[in-house]
Design a protein around this nucleic acid. Structure first.
Length: 306
DNA sequence: AATGGAGACAACCGCATCTGC
DNA sequence: CGCAGATGCGGTTGTCTCCAT
């Protein structure tokens, strides 16, 4: 009755990924782009199941992922989105730039659940003086989305023909164009070399155990102790902690990063909101009076809600 | 210094959904 | 339209680290 497993369990490696495996996976994605995960293990020789490869990429290797501590704003955002959406982590992640659903889920389970237990309140489990009604929250979400929509309108009307990686317009995301893969990933090849160098520097031993690799991974998650090679690999600036659907939320992404994200299906922080916005943009029925009202909400008013 | 418990997070598992034939 | 394979998602587990004793 049950479907056969996604991969042949025999000979499939489990447990923490080693740096070597990471490099193989990144190299493959450089060449072929994310997707077609089924082919990854066979093409790369990785003894991993396709799901494991996808997960490793989307939760860890994919550029644009912010690691380390969650900011207060992010925390509040998660709390309210969870109240609104429930445990739909992927949906929540789509509103949180640079965070993966797995990250958010972990953070919720390890931090926020306990926190909320400590502060049982009536209004959307709010705390820290951050108590707004669900209606307000929905309204604010709509406002945020509307703002992004407006920005996209502007960007498109200003210069729709320009193919420059203009971050202001859709964070470099152009729904009508697929990224050029070869050139997109080419620059990462040298980054992988840097990555290797970095690992060599950080590990005196030539061979590393899985636990060491895990440790390396954990270190990288601390932000401050991230191996510089990892940083350089994706040219990722993790200092940005903006939350709402503002234009600059992914402004620190490099064009390369944006293109990488375009390739990966989840596109956590950019694609989902923008897709919605695009849909609304071109949806003839989108302009309701209610939304007109939302247009009138000032940025300041919205900001004050936080 | 040793050790046990708690916390944190990467990764796995299984079900749901999507997609192509 | 139905089926099978691929992919996505959420829950859960395993393991490592940190800290208190």
């Amino acid at each position: 009755m049950g479907r056969p497993p996604c991969c042949d369990k025999i000979g499939v490696k489990k447990g923490p990924w080693t740096p070597e495996e990471d490099i193989i996976l990144v190299s493959y994605i450089q060449d072929h782009g994310p997707g077609n995960w089924r082919a990854v293990p066979t093409s790369t020789g990785l003894l991993r199941c396709s799901k494991s490869c996808r997960l490793r990429w989307t939760n860890y290797l994919r550029p644009g992922i912010k690691r380390g501590n969650f900011t207060d704003q992010e925390e509040k955002m998660i709390i309210h989105l969870q109240a609104l959406l429930g445990n739909r982590w992927a949906a929540i992640a789509s509103y949180l730039p640079q965070r993966t659903d797995n990250d958010i889920k972990n953070y919720w389970n390890t931090h926020l659940k306990k926190k909320l237990k400590k502060f049982p309140t009536g209004v959307d489990h709010n705390q820290d003086g951050f108590s707004i009604s669900k209606g307000q929250w929905e309204r604010r979400l709509q406002t945020d989305i509307h703002m992004a929509k407006q920005a996209l309108c502007e960007a498109l009307s200003i210069d729709t023909s320009s193919s420059l990686p203009d971050l202001k317009s859709s964070n470099g995301y152009n729904p009508n164009t697929r990224p050029v893969q070869a050139s997109t990933y080419a620059s990462s090849a040298e980054n992988i070399a840097k990555l290797l160098e970095g690992w060599m520097r950080n590990s005196p031993k030539s061979t590393r155990t899985n636990s060491e690799a895990t440790q390396n991974s954990k270190n990288s998650s601390e932000g401050a102790t991230t191996p510089d090679a990892l940083d350089s690999l994706f040219s990722f600036n993790s200092s940005n902690s903006d939350l709402s659907l503002s234009n600059d939320e992914t402004a620190n992404f490099t064009p390369e990063t944006s293109l990488f994200q375009d390739e990966s299906k989840p596109n956590l922080e950019t694609q989902v909101p923008l897709t919605m916005i695009e849909k609304w943009l071109f949806d003839e029925g989108a302009a309701t009076q209610e939304q007109e009202d939302l247009i009138d909400m000032s940025l300041e008013e919205t900001a004050q809600l936080f």
